[in-house]
Amino acid sequence: METNNSEKKQYFYVLLCADNSFYGGYTTEPTRRLKEHNDGVGAKYTRVRSRRPAKMIYTEAFETKSEAMRAEYAFKQLARHEKEKFLKKYL
């Protein structure tokens, strides 16, 4: 039985990059997306060699794409110290 996209989980995720920066993103397949980032074909931000390898330190599943993207947007609006506080239990 095929699964359509509306039945897939939608994920907000955070990477800890090799330069100690954070990258927040959205995906339906966290494992595949991490590989893309580390292969240098993910987001423009992680294509920079000094940011790789990246480690996925946080994922949160949502039912809808818009919920996951809202979580991503909210994370990206935080100051560095607020991101660290949010992620403290995962670092």
Rank of each mutant, 00 (worst) to 15 (best):
F22P: 01
A54E: 03
E72Y: 06
K85S: 15
A43C: 10
K83Q: 11
M69R: 07
A18S: 13
K83C: 14
Q77C: 12
T46P: 01
C17K: 05
A79H: 03
Y90F: 15
S21F: 05
Y11D: 14
K44Q: 08
V41D: 09
K8P: 00
K55Y: 09
F12D: 00
D39N: 08
I57W: 07
A18N: 13
F62V: 05
E60A: 11
M69L: 09
R33S: 04
F62Y: 01
E36P: 04
T59G: 06
A43Q: 07
E84M: 01
V14L: 13
Y58G: 15
F75D: 03
K85F: 10
E67M: 00
E29I: 04
E36I: 02
D39P: 05
K76C: 13
R70W: 10
T46L: 01
S6R: 04
R47A: 14
M56H: 08
K85P: 06
P30S: 05
L91T: 14
P53R: 10
S50A: 12
A71C: 07
E36S: 12
F12P: 00
L15H: 03
R80P: 04
N5W: 13
Y90L: 15
T59L: 03
G24K: 01
Y73D: 11
R51H: 06
K8F: 05
A68L: 05
K44N: 04
E36N: 11
